[in-house]
Design a protein around this nucleic acid. Sequence first.
DNA 1: CGGAATCCCACCTGATACTG
DNA 2: CAGTATCAGGTGGGATTCCG
Lengths: 140, 140
Amino acid sequence: MAQVPPHSRIPLDLPLDHVGSDACSVDNPASGMIREILARVGDKWSMLVIGVLHDGPLRFTQLHRKVDGISQRMLTQTLRNLERDGLVQRTSYPEIPPRVEYAATPLGTSLSEPVIRLALWAAEHQGEILAAREAFDEAE
Amino acid sequence: MAQVPPHSRIPLDLPLDHVGSDACSVDNPASGMIREILARVGDKWSMLVIGVLHDGPLRFTQLHRKVDGISQRMLTQTLRNLERDGLVQRTSYPEIPPRVEYAATPLGTSLSEPVIRLALWAAEHQGEILAAREAFDEAE
DNA sequence: CGGAATCCCACCTGATACTG
DNA sequence: CAGTATCAGGTGGGATTCCG
């Protein structure tokens, strides 16, 4: 299931030094950027919303159902942040009853790919993580 | 980068179902797992630690200096979590004065790659995000 | 239907002090 | 050096209620 998607054109010889060394070290101001992005993307819900919106626009209530466990408050807040960052576009139709659609922007869609990488990594290594966790918990 | 039409209903050859909740079972093991991974990866310090450890093992105080702004408490806690998940290996040398080394495991190193993709995405689109943010803030 | 406003608390986090 | 212990403040996020 971990096959590389056909339209993925990310070179696999990615330089891994970009986080740890001079190109982008933690002493470097660039790390602030990383931290900020991870904060945005890594919050409890943003990535899941981006994920479900990749398939197409959804209404508020549809999103509420699709993203399991999210509260109304958090969904609203998350959508606001994503909209603010240009990752999601909100379109309101002045009808009765009111209808509001949320769609991923091209920018938001482009974010899906790295997010999916992470998801794949998680899927691939979840067994190892769980095993390590059990071993650790049992050893103490 | 891979251009994807914003609202295309093209079937995803990427297993995006692991991100949302719909394609998973009711209990959503995959979604919960993703969420958990994102929680680990997205917390304030884990990735920075993984990042600096990518270059090689470091001692506690070295880490403390390299990861700017982290408190002793959070460094300890972060390292414990990473160790528990098998991402970091802790080695204690019974010497005087005591010496403890932290090294990224192969699993931890493999995590760097998707994270770096995220960082690269951030670097690439940071300008767009900031512009969108300014436009949004100004419009309200 | 799609929110906004309010209440409230668990937990995250930093600061400080102490220990083997 | 490499932590642990304790306290205190801020905040993330759920539950509930109300509104256009």
